[in-house]
Amino acid sequence: MLEQLAQFYAVYGSVINFIGINALLALSLNVTLAAGMLSLGNAAFAGLGGYAAGILTIYFKLPYVVSLCGGALVAGIVGLVLGLPVLRLRGVFLAMATLAFGEVVRIAAVNLDITGGAEGLTGIPNVTKTWIIYLTLAGTAYFMAVLRSSKLGWALVSMREDETAAACLGIHVTYYKVVAFTIGAMIAGLAGGMYAHLNYLITPRDFGFFIAVDLLIYNIVGGTRIWYGPILGAALITALPEILRGVGVTAGPIRMGVNGLILLLVILFLPNGLASIFARVRPAAAKAETA
């Protein structure tokens, strides 16, 4: 049994790692989504965190944990500075502003010397371990669950339902928005730092527009209203190519098509995402959380 487990890990260890990191990224987006704000900048925050952590490790020889925190901090500060002006925008316009920000970050990474340009920042030691990723994920998930029932959490939910009403009730809308946005940016930055220390290098392409969209996909597929929804979504979407590989769907266009089809089916037939499956199993528990 132990041998089989080791074998399983040898084959799927990297998938497991990526699931963990993508789940963290999905949670980072969920903080703002829970308040009805769609940010397409979280991939860029992950990039900022990844580059900052990598640079701290390579050039400043800082220990792993310090570099990670540094990466998260950089992402958080940029999130704060960016959040103040852009968070008065709503819906698609917020999405576009953050998207433009993301593109500028990506282009900066392509053109700067310290980031290594298109070839990326190389020589980052591979020190992120599976247990570190999942410990962080567990901590973040716990934090998110607590957050949901905190004053901040209720404020965010009420802002999603009706922002004007929330403001009338004396909720300081801008303040809570900026706080949520900054928390999301820090989580993304943390995930980016771990990603950089998992892959030996990071490149501008690891954090482009399509990655930003992926984060949204994780959330919607998994379900945004329960804390474990984004984690489920990230797990399914990240593992999907491997599952299809395993069941023998030929590599290439066909697998790509099946990938798209499954995404479509989930969206059409599971209105509240994968999490709703579990909600049906435990209706009482789910009701309490979505109420």
């Binding site: 919607i220 290439g252 266009p253 990938n259 798209g260 089809l261 479509l264």
Partner: peptide
């Protein structure tokens, strides 16, 4: 529907692109 429509249109885009490639 704003968000889910975004995702379902992405799913269709993936399917269309796969068909085009095939």
């Amino acid at each position: 529907s704003q968000f889910s429509g975004l995702i379902s249109s992405i799913a269709m885009a993936i399917i269309f692109e796969a068909v085009a490639m095939g």
